[in-house]
């Protein structure tokens, strides 16, 4: 899972909720690896803890699929994802091409 870093040493992550694109986030290169490690090994999102939110996660290359517990609306999922990404020091961005993908779904 070695990350590709551009000249500025950052990476762009594209977020989607229930299959719909909902924005890009920029973090220092390696941020996607941190995020994926949180979900895969710690089973939680940055800024949340196991008791709050246990996530199911699957990583395929640079694409991370997440299923969050509880039936949540896309807006609620987006708020959780936005908080989690901020907690790993990634911020919304409008420029640059995404090289990592985070796909979030609510539990059925």
């Amino acid at each position: 899972m070695a990350s590709k870093s551009n000249d500025r040493g950052v990476e762009i992550m594209a977020a989607s909720i229930d299959g719909k694109a909902c924005g890009n986030y920029e973090g220092l290169a390696g941020t996607f690896a941190s995020f994926a490690d949180s979900c895969l090994r710690h089973k939680t999102l940055p800024g949340f803890y196991r008791t709050d939110l246990t996530v199911e996660a699957e990583l395929k290359g640079r694409r991370l699929h997440l299923v969050l517990p509880g039936k949540r609306t896309p807006a609620e999922l987006m708020e959780i994802l936005d908080t989690a990404l901020l907690n790993i020091v990634a911020f919304p961005c409008t420029e640059g091409k995404a090289e990592c993908f985070i796909e979030v779904k609510s539990e059925k």
């Binding site: 990350s3 040493g9 220092l28 290169a29 390696g30 941020t31 090994r41």
Partner: peptide
């Protein structure tokens, strides 16, 4: 407690 640090950091 077993915190992951990417190489970039």
């Amino acid at each position: 407690d077993n915190v992951f640090i990417p190489w970039e950091r």
